[in-house]
Amino acid sequence: MVTLIVDNKEIETQEGSTLLQACLDNGIYIPNLCYLNGIEDPPGSCRLCFVEIEGYDQPRTSCRVKVQQGMVVRTNTEHVRRLQKTAFELLLSTHHVECRNCPANKKCELQRIAKFLHFGLKLKRLEPLERDIEVEHEHPFLEYIPTRCVLCGKCVFVCRKRNGQPMLSFAKRGFDTVISFFGENDKPVDVCNECYACAEICPVGALLVKDSPNTSNPWKRGSFNDKGKCQTPLK
Protein backbone atom coordinates (compact mmCIF):
# COMPACT_ATOMS: atom_id res chain seq x y z
CA MET A 1 0.00 0.00 0.00
CA VAL A 2 1.02 3.57 -0.68
CA THR A 3 -0.05 6.60 1.29
CA LEU A 4 -0.30 10.05 -0.16
CA ILE A 5 -1.76 13.35 0.80
CA VAL A 6 -4.52 14.74 -1.33
CA ASP A 7 -6.04 18.08 -0.40
CA ASN A 8 -4.52 17.79 3.07
CA LYS A 9 -6.11 14.39 3.57
CA GLU A 10 -4.13 11.22 3.90
CA ILE A 11 -5.29 8.45 1.58
CA GLU A 12 -4.15 4.90 1.05
CA THR A 13 -4.08 3.10 -2.22
CA GLN A 14 -2.54 0.20 -4.05
CA GLU A 15 0.89 0.46 -5.51
CA GLY A 16 0.86 0.94 -9.26
CA SER A 17 -2.48 2.69 -9.24
CA THR A 18 -2.93 5.90 -11.17
CA LEU A 19 -3.34 9.03 -9.12
CA LEU A 20 -6.76 9.63 -10.64
CA GLN A 21 -7.98 6.15 -9.70
CA ALA A 22 -6.60 6.51 -6.19
CA CYS A 23 -8.50 9.75 -5.70
CA LEU A 24 -11.72 8.38 -7.16
CA ASP A 25 -11.45 5.28 -4.95
CA ASN A 26 -11.14 7.54 -1.94
CA GLY A 27 -14.13 9.63 -2.75
CA ILE A 28 -12.19 12.56 -4.15
CA TYR A 29 -13.73 13.46 -7.49
CA ILE A 30 -11.55 14.84 -10.25
CA PRO A 31 -13.30 15.66 -13.53
CA ASN A 32 -12.38 13.11 -16.18
CA LEU A 33 -13.75 11.82 -19.44
CA CYS A 34 -11.19 9.65 -21.18
CA TYR A 35 -10.00 7.49 -18.30
CA LEU A 36 -11.26 3.99 -17.53
CA ASN A 37 -10.31 1.91 -14.57
CA GLY A 38 -7.84 -0.69 -15.72
CA ILE A 39 -7.06 0.97 -19.03
CA GLU A 40 -3.50 0.35 -19.90
CA ASP A 41 -1.54 3.38 -21.12
CA PRO A 42 -4.41 5.89 -20.67
CA PRO A 43 -4.77 8.22 -23.65
CA GLY A 44 -4.68 11.39 -21.55
CA SER A 45 -6.70 13.17 -24.18
CA CYS A 46 -9.60 14.98 -22.49
CA ARG A 47 -7.23 17.16 -20.43
CA LEU A 48 -9.67 17.53 -17.53
CA CYS A 49 -8.05 15.55 -14.76
CA PHE A 50 -5.36 18.10 -13.91
CA VAL A 51 -3.97 18.26 -10.38
CA GLU A 52 -0.99 19.99 -8.82
CA ILE A 53 1.70 17.79 -7.39
CA GLU A 54 4.35 19.10 -5.06
CA GLY A 55 7.67 19.26 -6.88
CA TYR A 56 6.20 20.06 -10.27
CA ASP A 57 5.58 23.62 -11.33
CA GLN A 58 2.87 22.80 -13.87
CA PRO A 59 -0.38 20.94 -13.25
CA ARG A 60 -0.32 17.35 -14.50
CA THR A 61 -3.01 15.02 -15.76
CA SER A 62 -3.64 12.65 -12.86
CA CYS A 63 -4.66 9.74 -15.09
CA ARG A 64 -1.08 9.64 -16.39
CA VAL A 65 0.63 9.77 -13.00
CA LYS A 66 1.40 6.68 -10.96
CA VAL A 67 1.03 7.13 -7.21
CA GLN A 68 4.15 7.42 -5.13
CA GLN A 69 4.62 7.09 -1.43
CA GLY A 70 4.34 10.49 0.24
CA MET A 71 3.10 12.33 -2.83
CA VAL A 72 1.46 15.64 -1.95
CA VAL A 73 -1.39 16.52 -4.26
CA ARG A 74 -3.91 19.30 -4.58
CA THR A 75 -6.92 18.89 -6.78
CA ASN A 76 -8.60 22.25 -6.36
CA THR A 77 -6.10 25.03 -6.95
CA GLU A 78 -6.94 28.06 -9.04
CA HIS A 79 -4.56 26.95 -11.76
CA VAL A 80 -6.16 23.52 -11.95
CA ARG A 81 -9.63 24.96 -12.07
CA ARG A 82 -8.67 27.44 -14.77
CA LEU A 83 -7.41 24.67 -17.05
CA GLN A 84 -10.40 22.45 -16.28
CA LYS A 85 -12.88 25.19 -16.98
CA THR A 86 -11.22 26.08 -20.26
CA ALA A 87 -11.08 22.45 -21.35
CA PHE A 88 -14.70 22.02 -20.37
CA GLU A 89 -15.84 25.14 -22.18
CA LEU A 90 -13.93 24.03 -25.27
CA LEU A 91 -15.77 20.71 -25.21
CA LEU A 92 -19.07 22.48 -24.68
CA SER A 93 -18.42 24.77 -27.62
CA THR A 94 -18.73 21.83 -29.98
CA HIS A 95 -21.53 20.12 -28.09
CA HIS A 96 -25.20 20.53 -28.92
CA VAL A 97 -26.69 20.88 -25.50
CA GLU A 98 -30.28 19.66 -25.48
CA CYS A 99 -30.44 17.61 -22.36
CA ARG A 100 -34.20 17.38 -22.25
CA ASN A 101 -34.24 15.30 -25.40
CA CYS A 102 -31.10 13.39 -24.68
CA PRO A 103 -31.15 9.79 -23.47
CA ALA A 104 -28.10 10.55 -21.34
CA ASN A 105 -29.94 13.19 -19.35
CA LYS A 106 -29.20 12.84 -15.61
CA LYS A 107 -26.57 10.18 -16.22
CA CYS A 108 -24.39 12.42 -18.34
CA GLU A 109 -20.77 13.01 -17.37
CA LEU A 110 -20.85 16.52 -18.84
CA GLN A 111 -23.73 17.45 -16.58
CA ARG A 112 -21.81 16.12 -13.65
CA ILE A 113 -18.67 18.08 -14.51
CA ALA A 114 -20.68 21.24 -15.19
CA LYS A 115 -22.13 21.00 -11.74
CA PHE A 116 -18.85 20.14 -10.09
CA LEU A 117 -17.02 23.07 -11.65
CA HIS A 118 -19.99 25.39 -11.05
CA PHE A 119 -19.79 26.16 -14.73
CA GLY A 120 -23.20 25.25 -16.04
CA LEU A 121 -23.86 24.12 -19.58
CA LYS A 122 -23.79 27.55 -21.21
CA LEU A 123 -20.82 29.02 -23.03
CA LYS A 124 -19.21 31.99 -21.33
CA ARG A 125 -16.42 33.34 -23.51
CA LEU A 126 -16.58 31.15 -26.58
CA GLU A 127 -18.88 30.99 -29.55
CA PRO A 128 -20.41 27.67 -30.52
CA LEU A 129 -18.55 25.89 -33.29
CA GLU A 130 -20.35 23.93 -35.94
CA ARG A 131 -18.92 20.84 -37.47
CA ASP A 132 -20.05 19.65 -40.80
CA ILE A 133 -20.72 16.06 -39.95
CA GLU A 134 -23.73 13.94 -40.60
CA VAL A 135 -25.26 11.57 -38.12
CA GLU A 136 -24.09 8.08 -38.96
CA HIS A 137 -27.04 5.97 -40.08
CA GLU A 138 -25.22 3.15 -41.82
CA HIS A 139 -24.72 0.88 -38.88
CA PRO A 140 -27.32 -1.83 -38.47
CA PHE A 141 -27.75 -1.48 -34.71
CA LEU A 142 -25.99 1.68 -33.62
CA GLU A 143 -26.35 5.36 -34.19
CA TYR A 144 -23.61 7.90 -33.67
CA ILE A 145 -24.31 11.56 -32.98
CA PRO A 146 -21.15 13.53 -33.58
CA THR A 147 -22.51 16.78 -32.14
CA ARG A 148 -22.62 15.09 -28.75
CA CYS A 149 -19.41 13.08 -28.93
CA VAL A 150 -16.58 14.32 -26.71
CA LEU A 151 -14.06 11.99 -28.41
CA CYS A 152 -13.11 10.34 -25.15
CA GLY A 153 -12.30 7.09 -26.99
CA LYS A 154 -13.92 4.85 -24.38
CA CYS A 155 -16.10 3.16 -26.98
CA VAL A 156 -13.06 2.20 -29.05
CA PHE A 157 -11.31 0.89 -26.00
CA VAL A 158 -14.14 -1.30 -24.70
CA CYS A 159 -14.87 -2.63 -28.14
CA ARG A 160 -11.26 -3.66 -28.62
CA LYS A 161 -11.28 -5.23 -25.22
CA ARG A 162 -14.42 -7.19 -25.84
CA ASN A 163 -13.90 -8.15 -29.47
CA GLY A 164 -10.16 -8.24 -29.87
CA GLN A 165 -10.25 -5.84 -32.73
CA PRO A 166 -12.31 -2.66 -32.42
CA MET A 167 -15.28 -2.37 -34.73
CA LEU A 168 -15.18 1.37 -34.41
CA SER A 169 -12.29 3.78 -34.51
CA PHE A 170 -11.27 7.39 -34.74
CA ALA A 171 -11.53 8.78 -38.23
CA LYS A 172 -10.50 12.05 -39.91
CA ARG A 173 -8.19 14.44 -38.16
CA GLY A 174 -7.99 17.63 -36.20
CA PHE A 175 -11.21 19.47 -35.63
CA ASP A 176 -13.04 17.03 -37.91
CA THR A 177 -12.12 13.97 -35.89
CA VAL A 178 -15.07 11.63 -35.35
CA ILE A 179 -15.77 8.10 -34.34
CA SER A 180 -16.51 5.94 -37.32
CA PHE A 181 -18.03 2.52 -37.68
CA PHE A 182 -15.11 1.21 -39.58
CA GLY A 183 -12.56 -0.85 -37.81
CA GLU A 184 -8.94 0.16 -37.65
CA ASN A 185 -7.98 -1.15 -41.04
CA ASP A 186 -11.08 0.21 -42.74
CA LYS A 187 -12.76 -3.06 -42.12
CA PRO A 188 -16.51 -2.55 -42.59
CA VAL A 189 -18.27 -3.44 -39.45
CA ASP A 190 -21.00 -5.77 -40.41
CA VAL A 191 -19.25 -7.99 -37.92
CA CYS A 192 -20.49 -6.00 -34.91
CA ASN A 193 -21.76 -8.61 -32.53
CA GLU A 194 -24.32 -6.44 -30.78
CA CYS A 195 -22.63 -6.41 -27.43
CA TYR A 196 -23.46 -2.69 -27.02
CA ALA A 197 -20.48 -2.24 -24.72
CA CYS A 198 -19.70 0.97 -26.57
CA ALA A 199 -23.12 2.50 -26.10
CA GLU A 200 -23.08 1.56 -22.46
CA ILE A 201 -19.72 3.12 -21.77
CA CYS A 202 -20.35 6.36 -23.66
CA PRO A 203 -20.25 9.09 -20.99
CA VAL A 204 -22.63 11.25 -23.01
CA GLY A 205 -25.47 10.47 -25.34
CA ALA A 206 -23.40 10.07 -28.49
CA LEU A 207 -23.68 6.37 -29.18
CA LEU A 208 -27.16 4.94 -29.17
CA VAL A 209 -28.69 1.58 -29.82
CA LYS A 210 -31.19 1.68 -32.60
CA ASP A 211 -34.57 0.16 -31.83
CA SER A 212 -34.11 -3.50 -31.41
CA PRO A 213 -36.76 -5.52 -29.70
CA ASN A 214 -34.57 -7.77 -27.66
CA THR A 215 -32.10 -5.28 -26.31
CA SER A 216 -31.98 -4.69 -22.64
CA ASN A 217 -29.85 -1.65 -23.28
CA PRO A 218 -30.89 1.50 -21.48
CA TRP A 219 -29.74 3.78 -24.29
CA LYS A 220 -32.56 2.92 -26.63
CA ARG A 221 -33.03 5.81 -28.87
CA GLY A 222 -35.96 7.56 -30.35
CA SER A 223 -35.65 8.75 -33.86
CA PHE A 224 -33.12 11.43 -34.61
CA ASN A 225 -32.85 14.00 -37.32
CA ASP A 226 -29.55 14.81 -38.99
CA LYS A 227 -28.50 17.29 -36.36
CA GLY A 228 -28.92 14.68 -33.71
CA LYS A 229 -32.04 16.26 -32.35
CA CYS A 230 -34.38 13.75 -30.86
CA GLN A 231 -37.79 13.85 -32.44
CA THR A 232 -39.52 11.44 -30.17
CA PRO A 233 -38.70 12.50 -26.64
CA LEU A 234 -38.24 9.63 -24.28
CA LYS A 235 -41.05 9.01 -21.87
Binding site: P43, S45, L129, L151, R173, G174, F175
Partner: peptide, 14 residues
Protein backbone atom coordinates in the same frame (compact mmCIF):
# COMPACT_ATOMS: atom_id res chain seq x y z
CA UNK B 1 -3.73 18.98 -35.13
CA UNK B 2 -4.18 15.26 -34.74
CA UNK B 3 -7.51 15.81 -33.03
CA UNK B 4 -6.70 13.83 -29.95
CA UNK B 5 -6.68 16.31 -27.14
CA UNK B 6 -9.26 18.93 -26.26
CA UNK B 7 -7.10 22.04 -26.07
CA UNK B 8 -5.43 21.62 -29.41
CA UNK B 9 -8.36 20.13 -31.34
CA UNK B 10 -10.92 22.74 -30.31
CA UNK B 11 -8.81 25.52 -28.83
CA UNK B 12 -6.76 26.22 -31.95
CA UNK B 13 -10.01 26.35 -33.91
CA UNK B 14 -11.29 29.13 -31.67
Amino acid sequence: SCGKCTFCRIGTKH
